[in-house]
Design a protein around this nucleic acid. Structure first.
Lengths: 229, 229, 229, 229
DNA sequence: AATGAATGAGTCTTCATTCAT
DNA sequence: TATGAATGAAGACTCATTCAT
């Protein structure tokens, strides 16, 4: 990994072909991370998978780190985008329903490419700070905070940034855990997360909806188990 | 007797000096991971930091991976141990108090060496399966499950393994999040986690105790923010 | 098409420059083996001698072993080729003359780079089996067998594969021995080998030709002497 | 391998226990060479197999090379001894019978530990010169020469050192070849070698004895085949 | 004398990055 | 602009040898 600043792409890809190539590199990287892991994601492998030469790769990215950074950035941006859209789309519904929608999306995302998500998390924590990421983070927390504000009356506690952040981490923790424990049925995880969030907010769960017993997830697969908090 | 695993130490350190050296390697590795990150933790650096030669290092560990594995194993074992002890020590107390004790310990641990904890998590997910780790995991979940069983009457839902696991991940998620967001005051995180856990369990928080408003954490530092669930 | 073997070159060198580099590596290796021995033939030395960097070397060969393997393969192939050509070229001549031609070539080859030949022999026995080598071996034996068949009437015994193989080893043993004993005059060795081969076949040596006394070889140098059978 | 001169053992082992240990090291080395090959014969492995510590090993031998050297020396000495004894023991018999006896011994030796023999040959050629080895060589050649002298009248050619040496290499070559080709029946090889030697000497083979057809040896096993002379 | 822990130079191999074509 | 050969620093690991106990 180069010492170079994890920064912007070397040039803003304006032409359609350039943009395609640029995207191809990112997708190739994602695919390798997902299937072979971080160690296998070297520039040669990425270039080959993306269908170009190493030399060309360096015309789009100043270095390996920048590819990862951009991958994270996009991922975060997409999340922020999706979250904001979902909050907007569910305006007017009751809090539980809206959380359900959010959690559902989060679960879907994480269960789609769990390994990739995990590696990007690791990289994000490892790589240096980045304004763009912080901006996305703020938008994400902001969306949840906005949601809470819209339901401030129903809450046992005032809606703050900290509460919003906590909620995000509760959801993330539970979903990660379920995924790592080998649960393959996202539908089983979802209500548990919603329940946890409502519980944290001190809101009684909507009696009529999905209240049922906690369904055990899929059998724990060999790998990593419960967290060591 | 278990089959010899590739990650086992090369020779069981019986003599005091050997044990010291062995521990020194582990501590050196932990220190490098904590301060310089995973990439910096190469065998030469570890050996130097531990105050011995590479050759000697390889007399205690069959390879770099084994060092990491042992580090994780010890970490997990300590957690399992601590958790079990705490559950035992708080027998007879009310559920909220007991959870408080557990969370306090967890927070203390994570805030002590956050980066190390994060890297070990990543490594644990990356490295192959390991009986010892699975055993520790089971003990950890088991302790929480036992705790729940002791308070089954107060719970809104039956205490299952899944519930126990969810609780662990809720706590881990929140603590990680707080740590990553730059919160440096563990005491501020603790009650929030307890509240989340009790909320998830559907238990009313002990009215008299620590009910207060959610205190905002320390100023968020630039570093990685909220999760993208 | 044969399965890709681990010892195959990493990429088939199509371009002239590539082929040159590829050959340069082989020649550098041969030269080092010849002058400094097997222990000195490390990848760094080979790369340096070949005039390229280690990295480049690994673009042409997947590993050190593959270089040796290719060296052996070429050597064997060249021998097989040469032998077959010689057998064809001498068609119609009498048996003794043809053997003389063969032995002369063998002597020339072995006396040219005796140490290299010895090391390649050792490596061939050490490295794992290899189809290509076996094929070359068969061609070599086959050539001799074909030669015998053409003169079956003159032989005291039927020409079999075993006889052909024995002849090859007789020649190899004698030439090796002479070389190791410090004989530097190939011309002195040649008639002895021919005589041994004809003797083994039970054929009277052509009276008129080279019947003379056995000339003693060059003074035995310090180096390894006669075999210990 | 140390640059140190491949020389005498560090001290002449006088005491019985010392001698035993010394021998144990040599036998351990031989066993490892035979079963695991040259690469596996490192000082640690040798010491362990011999049942002593590396430190002790270095009290008996100045270095690894010295162990090999001594192994070769003993091997050669034993051969020289055996050959001389056999020549003496068969005094009075006819030439063919005596050669038969010699070849039989040689075949037995080579078929007993073929890999070891091969490796020692390689080492002998690789290691520097050594007076002791030259002396053994001379005794070996001398024995054969003496044998020839005793039958000078029957020979087509005067018995010289060169002839003796050639004979030794013919035998060695053929036996090596048979062994390498996978022939496991020494009895099948023996008469072929005798025939070759008598043929080289221009002596008619004793009509009554073993004149039969050449029996094909065992099927060629995968490994190294015929020589490339 | 024996031990075996310690040493560290040396080996093979990988991979981010550059640059001539 | 694209290519991909070339570079070489760096990293994991081995092993002959030494020396304190």
């Amino acid at each position: 990994m180069p010492r170079r600043r994890a920064s912007d792409p070397r040039k803003t890809p304006l032409q359609a072909r350039s943009r395609d190539t640029y995207d191809a590199v990112l997708e190739a990287t994602a695919r390798i991370l997902e299937t072979k892991g971080l160690e296998a994601a070297n520039t040669n492998a990425i270039a080959e998978r993306a269908g170009l030469s190493v030399g060309s790769l360096y015309q789009y990215f100043p270095g390996k780190t920048a590819i990862f950074a951009e991958l994270i950035r996009r991922n975060d941006a997409a999340t922020a985008e999706g979250l904001a859209a979902l909050v907007a789309a569910t305006a007017g519904q009751d809090l539980a329903s809206r959380l359900r929608a959010l959690v559902q999306a989060a679960v879907a995302r994480q269960f789609a490419r769990p390994r990739l998500a995990r590696i990007l998390d690791y990289l994000e924590a490892t790589l240096g700070a980045d304004e763009a990421l912080d901006a996305a983070d703020e938008r994400i927390v902001g969306s949840v905070e906005a949601l809470l504000h819209a339901h401030a009356g129903e809450l046992a506690r005032p809606p703050t940034t900290v509460v919003a952040r906590d909620m995000l981490w509760i959801a993330k923790g539970m979903i990660d855990g379920a995924s790592l424990a080998g649960e393959s049925d996202g539908a089983a995880v979802e209500p548990r997360v919603v329940r946890a969030l409502l519980g944290y907010l001190g809101v009684e769960e909507d009696a009529g909806r999905g209240g049922g017993a906690i369904r055990p997830g899929g059998r724990r697969r060999a790998r990593t188990g419960p967290p060591r908090p």
